[in-house]
Design a protein around this nucleic acid. Structure first.
Lengths: 117, 117
DNA sequence: TTGTATTATGTAGTTATACGACATATAGCC
DNA sequence: GGCTATATGTCGTATAACTACATAATACAA
């Protein structure tokens, strides 16, 4: 399906992109819900501005890492609520990024850098 | 000396900046040596272009994360070889970044994302 | 019923940083 | 003499994050 090159071409992820994909990994969500989830996951350290969020979602759609998952659904009321979910490629990229991050931490440990708060 | 705010203001580091600081953590080095060390540490995955490297060094000097450590030394031959070392702040920022990265990996594990190659 | 917070999506302009291409220069080896 | 490695640097471009601004529905309380 997707080659290693497809996956590596999308790395490294930025912190924002990482959290968005991680948020969508457990369940599909709409933009605002992603914002809140990222805040929670990062213990309030990362607060996505809307400019960052919607810009990132647009980019991720173009790159094929996420998909709209609400096509044809009833838009109950008012403004459209758009749901997104990870694609197969998106999931693989996320996995590869976790692997890359783990390697970064390991590289530091090999140089005897102990983490601090 | 340095407040938590000083340190957090410098996070997150980009991958390039992270590797440069990590390379300088064990010993002072000149630019080209950093390039080679980063290649080695990353198993050839990360190859710094000179534009990236010298641009990053200039920025890190301005931010006070690194220092020139060869002031007054004999420049044996030809073109000047410039040595850099971490400042106290640079070291603390590196430690804090390792901590941040570890949290990112942990966040993924909490969502049951297992890393893959 | 009015106002305020929360939910929800989006654009415009600015800034920071990584990258590739180009440029220069010495040292050592074949 | 020519090639490779060592070594430092600039310029232009692309990407992505951020702030500020803009719009709109829903829910709740005064």
């Amino acid at each position: 399906m997707h080659t290693i090159e497809d996956i590596q071409a999308n790395l490294p992820l930025t912190e924002v992109t990482y959290f968005i994909l991680l948020s969508l990994a457990s369940a599909q969500k709409h933009g605002y819900a992603i914002m809140k989830d990222v805040e929670a996951m990062s213990h309030k350290r990362v607060s996505l501005s809307t400019g960052t969020l919607y810009g990132a979602l647009k980019r991720l759609l173009e790159q094929g890492l996420i998909l709209r998952s609400d096509e044809g659904e009833t838009n109950h009321s008012g403004r459209t609520r758009k749901n997104y979910r990870l694609t197969e490629l998106g999931y693989r990229v996320l996995q590869a990024e976790v692997h890359r991050l783990d390697n970064l931490v390991t590289a530091a440990q090999l140089r005897s850098i102990h983490e601090s708060a």
